[in-house]
Design a protein around this nucleic acid. Structure first.
Lengths: 215, 215
DNA sequence: CGGATTTTTGACTGAGTGTTCAACTTGCCC
DNA sequence: GGGCAAGTTGAACACTCAGTCAAAAATCCG
């Protein structure tokens, strides 16, 4: 984070082009599989020129992950302790699924990094990510203890939400290989399924009986 | 699958050592990140000797994935159309979670491959995997239509089971960074959570009322 | 043992790749 | 326009790494 703010229009444009290209390339090939040549070509720059803006391949990767982390965690941050418990969690699920649909490259970028042991972002995980998750887990635990939702372990609930939503971005190839959709219409089916899954799991037993009686 | 069956004891031993080493290395570093030197050293062989048994790095990778695919899909194959619907699916979930605990390297091997677009196993996905999944999805759909389980989309149910269970292997680094467990005890919490999650989502409404009445 | 076959390896090759550097060009400002 | 800083690049360097090869070693078998 030494030279983060650009000084000239050219710097702003080229730095942005490099990060956009890096997102494209890193998310598809992983850190090791990506080459500076690919990034440079995708960004429309020469390889030495890329290294004029970032000192190394690794610096690009770290800058990219750092820049994206905030946006990536925003939906969880938005979980409102004052809101309706089930609504809040379901909104989080659907928001994450939307992100898997609209930002699959970002999802795969993090997936690649974490599957291989998060060699470059371990501090972020045990740092701000853990802090945020523990914070939100406390809220969810409160909801469970006051009967607003069924009693579930909040950490495992969060993990399952990450898993089920990001799956549609990270394992997109597999999902498409099996469903053979035309475009993105299978995301609607996923949304319906996940709504049912989490609504059923979170609705407290009392409310579940009412729900059954209505049907 | 040209020279699959070993002719001598030495071939059997060395081929096995190479595949074991390749699993270790590929699952941690991905295809591109793994080197033949690492595999050779881990296997206790010289690099040219490794290439005496397999013609290329890619051949090792493909052989490994092919060999493991059957074991990897076995739990889904075991889903019994004659069994109790909820029990069968819950047994599948817990079986997959056990595999994530006991065989995390295998899980990460496939995860690495698929995240990067499955360049080497696309045929397996659209072939035997799709066939098996479609087959089991038909069974699950039957259960839903006859009211043995709640009406859910079977494909998305299967995806969610893969996602929630393999998450503990593929994203192990992240899970441990947040939970900071001593060993594997968090898998017990995961099992309890997933049992609740899928039991709640799959139990038909009628049975749910009974369950509520009992409580 | 002795010869044929299988297995092993050190040394090498050639392609790919991250990074450096000195020279060149462009843009900016007085 | 002129001078200085910012931006750009071709060429080269150092290193990694998949794969080759010919020769040596080990194993097998009569």
């Amino acid at each position: 984070m030494a030279d983060s703010r650009p000084k000239t229009r050219i710097q702003a444009r080229n730095r942005a082009a490099i990060l956009e290209a890096a997102l494209e390339v890193f998310s598809q090939a992983g850190f090791r599989g990506a080459t500076l040549d690919q990034i440079a070509t995708t960004a429309g720059l020469s390889k030495p020129n890329v290294l004029y803006y970032y000192p190394s391949k690794e610096a690009i990767h770290v800058a990219l992950l750092s820049d994206l982390m905030d946006d990536w965690l925003e939906p969880l941050r938005a979980l409102d302790p004052e809101g309706d418990a089930v609504d809040e969690i379901l909104a989080y699920v659907l928001r994450k699924l939307d992100m898997a649909r609209e930002m699959p490259r970002e999802s795969r970028l993090f997936a690649n990094e974490i599957v291989q042991g998060a060699p470059r972002i371990m501090p972020m995980i045990t740092g701000e990510l853990k802090t945020l998750v523990d914070d939100k887990a406390r809220i969810i635990r409160g909801w469970a203890e006051t009967g607003m939702i069924a009693p579930v372990d909040p950490h495992h609930l969060i993990f399952s939400i990450w898993a089920t939503t990001q799956h549609y971005a990270d394992f997109d190839t597999q999902v498409r290989g099996i469903l053979a959709p035309e475009g993105d219409e299978h995301f609607d089916g996923a949304a319906a399924f996940l709504d049912h899954l989490y609504r059923a799991a979170l609705t407290p037993l009392g409310s579940a009986v009412e729900r059954a009686a209505d049907a």
